[in-house]
Design a binder for these strands. Sequence first.
DNA 1: CAGTATCCTTCGAGATACTG
DNA 2: CAGTATCTCGAAGGATACTG
Lengths: 128, 128
Amino acid sequence: MGTGQTVGHPDDADLTRADSLAREIFSGVANKWALLIINALADRTLRFTEVRTAVDGISHKMLTQTLRGLERDGVVHRTVYATVPPRVEYRLTEAGEGLLATVDGMCAWTHRYLAEIEAARSRFDARS
Amino acid sequence: MGTGQTVGHPDDADLTRADSLAREIFSGVANKWALLIINALADRTLRFTEVRTAVDGISHKMLTQTLRGLERDGVVHRTVYATVPPRVEYRLTEAGEGLLATVDGMCAWTHRYLAEIEAARSRFDARS
DNA sequence: CAGTATCCTTCGAGATACTG
DNA sequence: CAGTATCTCGAAGGATACTG
């Protein structure tokens, strides 16, 4: 993957210049809505509307759209109950659980550095 | 943070409904260019142009823009050498290193599930 | 309730040109 | 080389309305 100039990483977790499929998948998943949805599905199965509430701020459209993408990539599983009114449930697949670990890491990081980041911003904004 | 309906997470790594600053920071960092840049700076200090090459696909504008954001949040450190021609180097801060772990996780995840995702896509696309 | 479709606006982001 | 400044366009994304 690296072209030879990528040294230092024993096991290659590098994505700069990686093949296009890997890049595409990474890019598709590296967006806030996707990650926020995964985070919301962390430990429970949720219905469409519940996800919408949990993620809050997301529009109806973005929700379906992102959910479709995640379903297509096998990150979330979609179960439709043929009742009326319809009931659709979303839950993480095994791959989704794998990603969740990462998302948790980002959340933890955010909280861990919250204060420092705020301070850094003040400093940065001060000299401008 | 959770409102009480968020059960199951012993330590709260939840961001749904989190306070706006946390959400904003998370959102700022949860984008592919930021993560790709952090990934590129994994183990080396890079100059502006080198980052551009490493990340490839990123435009000049997005690079400066994203780099500024990361600098502002204290994720990357920017060193300017008053030479001519100018020389500017970027490296991860401690906070940046912290995020790197997460990014590495996402890269690893991508590679780990690459085949499965490809298969999932075929299945999904087949029935449509 | 879950989802699709449509319209319409905003702004993300590329291209280009210019400065220190 | 590194960076800012414009201009421009296309797509992302919100609001609304309609269907099974």
